[in-house]
Design a protein around this nucleic acid. Structure first.
Length: 513
RNA sequence: GUCCGGUUCGUCUAGGGGUUAGGACACCGCCCUUUCACGGCGGCAACACGGGUUCAAAUCCCGUACCGGAUACCA
């Protein structure tokens, strides 16, 4: 039997980091086992679900490269089936009608969650989960009241004695006494199916073999197993994932922590999808080796359920420090990808970034330059063509960048005359040495003289150089190796350190430190 | 409250009876570069606590503490 897993978000907001990781793990597991990765949008909570959320989630998954293998299932399309399932359970005597009027939601000033916790605490020990007066109502009477139009919810009849058990692929054997599980509502009094029922029905229908989801569902699983059994279906395997926590160890939430938990934030702030995916994979899972950078292929090959942790992971960021707006390891990993990924994969991403920043020029297009090797500093694009120049420039400056945004911000001066000077850089590299005001233009003239692009003086000019003996100096290319001695000599001549010249030039030319 | 889960450097983690407890990020230092960055080398830094079991416990068992999750006619 082939593995079938699913990612089942509810569209009540953008794609959250924790959800994204759940999706990723499902995807990796499916690929690793040669199975299918499915997507189901759990949009049955009409009040909270929005189309925009659905779109945002899809976008996030798309960005991460997690495309479902089959048609997306919208849970709301299946409510009729869910209803039927509840009714069949009722018919079979495995569920009962509860005619208790629906209690009004308590005051809205407190969050729903805490008010529920509060109530649970109050009810405390004396609770008896089998005390519902309608649980043992004779069928005839129940039918009659229903026929008369009295509203009812359908509750699952949880056995009085015994315990629920299942084996979690991550957390091991799980058990829960039935006395701890309430007769959960399957169908609301307005006929609306509830989460646990809907999930089970859909997972059955979709042929799900492994349910991989957040650990916050661990206790739900007992209820769901009960529903599977009542329906006469063998439950799938379950694997629960540790949660991702905020630095204060609270559950990472959209409401509380804002955009740092949203997938789209990372896309919009210049992250490489592969880098972020790599980072996410290592949050709560490990291949058990001393390695951090994994290609998607490697992740798929090495992924296994028993590499998943049992303890929650903290996603480390600081709300007050803009430099640590997200986990520093994620930023580092992104920089690592920017520096080391094949240039041809980076170029299109940089192009998009520059386009967004209105710095893109069509002349940069088509830059298939195979002969690039080493660091050729080519200042003038006129000498080698814009496309080639672009390619080399990106390859040069990517060494110091962390996100794609840096190409249009820190690196703006490479693509536009209109750029800002970093005040700190100005102070440190230019104002400190007033003589630079004369030195730099002088140096520029000297370099110009030396490397001026007259007759065939291009990057590949060394061919000519070789055949031209003593004229060598005149036609050397403008490379790091060739500039260096000139700068050194210049510095010496002016009685200063090359660093002063170099730093000053960099800041004057690019605006950055 | 009750039930369930968890606890190795600040953070992500390896290790699951005998290790100088390993790696990564961050931080610090040195080297490279008479520049920034990259890179290289090194440093700081952890087994929550208390009892067992054992020749030997970070590792197995019990308890405590702390953290988290769940407890809804939400998902």
């Amino acid at each position: 039997m082939t593995t079938r897993v699913r990612f089942a978000p509810s569209p009540t907001g953008y794609l959250h980091i924790g959800s994204a990781r759940t999706a990723l793990f499902n995807y990796l597991y499916a690929r690793h086992t040669g199975g299918k990765f499915l997507l189901r949008i759990e949009d049955t909570d009409l009040a909270r679900s929005t189309e925009e959320s659905t779109r945002s989630i899809l976008e996030g998954l798309e960005w991460l490269g997690l495309r479902p293998d089959e048609e997306i299932v919208f849970q709301s399309a299946n409510v009729e089936k869910h209803r039927k399932a509840a009714l069949s359970l009722l018919e079979a005597g495995k569920a009962y009608r509860d005619f208790t009027p629906k209690s009004e939601a308590s005051d809205t000033s407190v969050s729903v969650k805490s008010s529920i916790a509060e109530r649970a605490r109050k009810e405390g020990e004396k609770k008896n989960l089998r005390s519902n007066p309608y649980r043992e109502l004779p069928k005839a009477e129940s039918d009659e009241r229903a026929a008369k139009g009295e509203a009812f919810a359908i509750r699952l009849k949880v056995p009085e004695n015994g315990r629920s058990e299942f084996l979690d692929e991550v957390y091991g054997p799980q058990q829960r006494d039935y006395s701890e599980i309430e007769d959960l509502v399957l169908l609301r009094s307005d006929g609306h199916p509830l989460y646990n029922l809907a999930v089970v029905c859909d997972d059955i229908e979709m042929g799900i073999t492994h349910v991989i989801r957040g650990q916050d569902h661990l206790t739900n699983t007992h209820k769901q197993v009960l529903i599977y059994r009542a329906l006469g279906v063998e439950p799938p395997k379950f694997a629960h994932l540790p949660l991702i926590l905020a630095p204060d160890k609270s559950k990472l939430s959209k409401r509380k922590h804002g955009e740092v938990v949203s997938m789209t934030t990372y896309r919009d702030r210049g992250f490489i999808a592969a880098a972020f995916r790599n980072f996410l994979a290592l949050l709560g899972w490990s291949a058990g080796e001393e390695k951090e950078i994994y290609s998607l292929e490697e992740l798929i090959e090495k992924f296994s359920l028993d590499g998943i942790h049992r303890s929650n992971a903290v996603f480390n960021f600081s709300e007050s420090d803009p430099r640590r707006w997200t986990d520093e390891k994620a930023i580092w990993m992104n920089a690592e990808y920017i520096r080391n990924m094949p240039l041809d994969e980076l170029l299109p991403l940089v192009r998009e970034e520059l386009k967004a920043a209105k710095l893109w020029r069509e002349e940069y297009e088509d830059s298939s330059d195979s002969e690039i090797n080493g660091r050729v500093v080519q200042i003038a694009s006129s000498e080698i063509g814009d496309a080639k120049w672009f390619r080399r420039t990106i390859d040069l400056i990517r060494q110091r960048f962390f996100t794609l945004k840096d190409f249009s911000e820190q690196g703006r001066a490479y693509f536009s005359e209109d750029f800002d000077f970093d005040p700190a850089a100005l102070k440190k590299n230019l104002e400190k040495y007033p003589q630079l005001r004369e030195w730099l233009p002088e140096l520029a003239d000297r370099l110009e003289e030396r490397f001026s692009a007259s007759e065939g003086n291009t990057a590949s000019g060394d061919v000519q150089a070789a055949s031209n003996g003593q004229e060598l100096k005149e036609i050397q290319p403008f490379t790091e190796a060739n500039i260096e001695p000139i700068i050194k000599a210049f510095a010496e001549e002016k009685g200063t350190k090359p660093g002063v010249i170099l730093n000053g030039a960099r800041t004057a030319l690019t605006g950055v430190a």
